[in-house]
Every structure is written in C-alpha cells, then in structure tokens.
Simulated scan of single mutants.
Amino acid sequence: MQKLTIVIPAYNEQEVLKDTVPRLWSIEREVVTQNFLSEDSDMLIVDDGSSDNTWSIIESFHKQHSKIRGLRFSRNFGHQAALIAGLTEAIKTTNMTITIDADLQDDPEKIMEMVQAYSAGADIVYGVRTHRETDSWFKRTTAQGYYKLLRLLGVQMVPNHADFRLMSKRAAQTLLTYPERNMFIRGLIPKLGFQTAKVYYRRTPRLAGESKYPLKKMLAFAWDGITSLTIAPVRLILLLGTLAVMLAFGMSVYSIIVKVLGLTVHGWSSLMVSLWFLGGLQMMSLGVIGEYIGKMMTEVKGRPRYTIQTRLD
C-alpha cells in the first residue's frame, strides 16, 4: 500500500502548532481511509531552529502519536533547508510527500485532491492560489511583477504556487540529486520533468502569530530565486556595457564634429552626470558579479545545508 508523509517546516510557530497538528492529523487519517493508503502514513515536523516552545509542542504530540515525528535543527537554516531535510528524511520510508507550511494559509482540505491526482498518475501536484485578495496591494503587485520578470529571464515557474505540493518518491529523489546550497525549490521543481497536476484553492489568513517572511526576507528570497536559476543579470551587464560603449563612441564622433564646427560648449553638468551615471553602472555591475561569485564560493565549500540536533522517530 502507498504511504503518505506530510512534511511541515516550522520556525517559531508555537501559536499555531497546537491547532495545525490535530487538524492535519485528522485530515491525513481521513485521506488514508478513503484512498486506501497505508496506516503507517505519518507526519514529519521540521523545527528550523526555533527560539520559542515549538520543539516542546512537537515532543508532546510525538508522545501522543508515534507517527507524528520531528526533526530539530541546531540553529535556523531557513525555510528551504527545512523542506529539503524533511524530504530527505521522509523518502526513506514513504511513497509520496506533501509539504505545507505550519500556518495553514494553504488549504489542507485539498490534500485529498492531491492524493487523488497522484493516484491518477501525477508525480508532482502543485497547490495553486486562485486569488491574492488577502495580500496587500504592494505584495500582490510585486508578486505579479516578479513572476513576469522571471518569465522574461527564461525561468519556468508556476504562478501563485509556493511550497504547498505533493511529490512522488521518484520526483523527490530526483530533486535531492541537485547538490546546490543556494536552492529555490519552487523554481527547480518544474525542471524535474515529471507528469504534473494542479489543485486550486483560496488562501486564508494565518491562524495566529506573525508571518516569518517580512519584506526584507521576501526581497532576499526573491533575489536568491533569480540568481540561483539564471545568469540573465550578468548578461544584462554585458548588454548595458555594450550600449555604454556605443554611446561613448557616438559622443566621441559628436564631440569631434562640434569641435570642427567651432560650436564647443564648455559645460560642467553634462560631464558630472556622465561620470556619476557610468560610475554607478560600474558599481552595480560589480555588485551583481560579486553576488554570483559569492554564491559560487558557498557552493565550492560544500558545507552541509543543515545540522540536525534531535530526531523523534
């Protein structure tokens, strides 16, 4: 029989876990019964180095149900690392995994449809939001602009999909063969090439607590997505540099013509604007190149993505 494991990354989620875990456990039991899945189907919560009582809550649930398992990081390694750790642990014994955030803004009632899509032959089932009405105007607009930017850069993405998805064992195993540390999972999944399906849902507000992705983290995450999936920014630098050289050549020709015609105008403003523009362009270019070199250095070091401090099996 097929076994299902629900993987839940959690970072300082003490306010929601007491409601999240029982609800997901109940849904999973219902899915197991109706879809004839293995009774060994379980749940794996990955504590991403929380500083509150998240781990204590996980321990208490594990004592009540041995199939509610836990991993605890030695420190905060990030959401993507928690997902990778959960998948790595889960696929040792399971046939399919479903990843969902602890705040349950993604609709857990759609787990049933995901499992049915898997039974119909899909190796990857995306949970896709039907609207963004719960987001602020700024977040909604920037998210839509980000997806459009990625498409322009040649990156395959599923719009309005985060990390609520089902993956078969072979799909998860294939993802885990990607060795990079700078991972943007939702951008890598479409590269796997397996049969996919989509389940649509309406996102709801958090049950409690605050978002673990404030604006600063969201911007950093978005930038990681671009730099980990495409070298288009470096190519853009080459294009801008080429245009600057062409402009400089044109200005040189113009200056010679003006000089010959005796129409030379001595100006300070135009000179300073040109210097500041080219200087700023050079600094930005160095910054983008430095970002890629820094990520290359991180990859070359080959440091572990995460460190597990405690396991609850």
Rank of each mutant, 00 (worst) to 15 (best):
M1H: 03
K3T: 01
V7P: 01
V7M: 04
V7K: 04
D19S: 13
P22D: 10
R23M: 07
L24H: 06
L24Y: 15
L24P: 01
S26I: 00
R29D: 11
E30T: 00
E30H: 05
T33I: 02
L37C: 10
D40K: 08
S41M: 04
L44K: 03
L44Y: 05
I45R: 07
D47M: 04
S51A: 15
S56D: 08
I57V: 01
E59D: 07
F61P: 00
Q64V: 06
H65I: 09
S66N: 07
S74D: 12
R75E: 08
R75D: 06
R75A: 12
N76T: 06
F77E: 03
H79E: 04
H79F: 13
A81K: 03
A82Y: 05
A82H: 02
G86S: 06
L87E: 05
T93Y: 15
N95P: 09
I98E: 14
D103G: 06
Q105Y: 13
D107L: 08
D107S: 14
E109I: 11
M114H: 13
G121T: 00
R129S: 03
R132W: 15
T134A: 13
T134P: 00
T134D: 09
D135G: 05
S136R: 09
A143G: 14
G145T: 01
K148H: 12
K148R: 05
G154C: 11
Q156D: 12
M157S: 11
V158T: 04
A162H: 12
R165L: 11
K169A: 13
R170P: 11
Q173P: 11
P179G: 14
E180S: 07
F184M: 02
G187Q: 04
G187D: 01
I189R: 06
K191P: 11
L192F: 10
L192A: 02
F194R: 02
A197I: 05
V199Q: 05
Y201R: 05
Y213T: 03
L215P: 05
L219S: 07
A220I: 04
A222R: 03
W223N: 10
D224K: 11
S228D: 06
T230C: 11
V234D: 09
R235C: 09
L236N: 11
I237V: 01
I237M: 08
G241H: 09
T242D: 12
L247R: 08
L247N: 14
F249V: 10
F249H: 09
V253T: 10
Y254A: 15
V260T: 11
V260W: 06
G262H: 02
V265C: 09
V265S: 10
H266C: 06
W268C: 08
S269W: 13
V273D: 15
L275I: 09
L275D: 01
F277K: 03
G280D: 02
M283L: 14
M283C: 10
G287T: 10
V288G: 07
Y292W: 05
M297Y: 15
T298G: 13
E299C: 01
E299N: 00
I308H: 11
Q309C: 13
T310Y: 15
R311I: 00
D313H: 15
